[in-house]
């Protein structure tokens, strides 16, 4: 009977994550493209720092929602403990400087626009590592299983996997327009990279919903 139960758990996990991911990706899409170049507070070109801050919050909330929906359904998940939460925060705070240094290494100005670089690093660590942190915690083996072997389990880990990879890849791609001589406002550091990260994040959410949908479909068919 345990098989049946696991099956249903897995199905429930899939369904919930799928629903939340779909919702979040749609929300991100709207948030990303409607205020673009509008001059409002969410506009990345004119209000880069503020918009980045807001986006960090948005991503935090979205990831929390996705993960929470699943942890509720699983009795054994222990993410809500205060001690582990502190640990996560510590890890997270350690990751931000790492991303900051990597950004500098890739050629961000060393002395100028430090606030921008810091915000970018913060965003990158939120979009790139927070999902992983929420699903694997500080367990290095889990991390390596998901990201090195690229074998996330169906459910939240798929979201974490796609979102992290796509965000980082998007940030990487975002650097390419900077040297072009178009002299557009969004070519200024770090707007294009932030934009790349956010696009990557959104695409990651979409990819994970596709991935989850396919798994779900397969699961249902297998059962029949």
């Amino acid at each position: 009977m345990t098989d049946e139960k696991t099956y249903y758990t897995a199905r429930k996990v899939l369904k919930r994550t799928l629903a939340w991911t779909l919702f979040c990706s749609l929300a991100s899409l709207i948030l990303l493209f409607i205020p673009f170049n509008s001059g409002t507070i969410l506009d990345l070109v004119s209000n880069c720092l503020v918009a980045t801050k807001i986006w960090i919050l948005v991503i935090l909330i979205q990831i929390c929602f996705i993960c929470k929906s699943v942890t509720q359904s699983l009795p054994s998940k222990q993410h809500s403990k205060v001690g582990s939460l502190l640990k996560y925060v510590a890890v997270f705070l350690a990751i931000v400087p790492v991303f900051y240094v990597i950004t500098i290494l890739f050629g961000a100005p060393l002395t100028e626009s430090r606030a921008e670089t810091f915000h970018f690093a913060l965003l990158l660590s939120v979009a790139g590592t927070f999902p992983g942190l929420m699903t694997c915690g500080v367990n290095l083996n889990e991390w390596s299983r998901i990201f090195v072997l690229s074998s996330p389990e169906n459910g939240v880990e798929v979201v974490a996997y796609w979102v992290s990879l796509c965000s980082i890849f998007g940030a990487w791609l975002g650097a390419f327009p900077i040297p072009l001589d178009w002299d557009r406002p969004w070519q200024v550091w770090p707007v294009s990279c932030v934009l790349g990260t956010l696009c990557g994040y959104t695409i990651g959410l979409m990819l994970s919903s596709v991935h989850l949908f396919i798994s779900y479909y397969k699961m249902v068919r297998q059962k029949r």
């Binding site: 897995a10 889990e142 299983r145 074998s151 996330p152 389990e153 169906n154 459910g155 880990e157």
Partner: peptide, 8 residues
Amino acid sequence: DNYFSYFH
């Protein structure tokens, strides 16, 4: 986790 990873 192991379980899941395996089936994946």
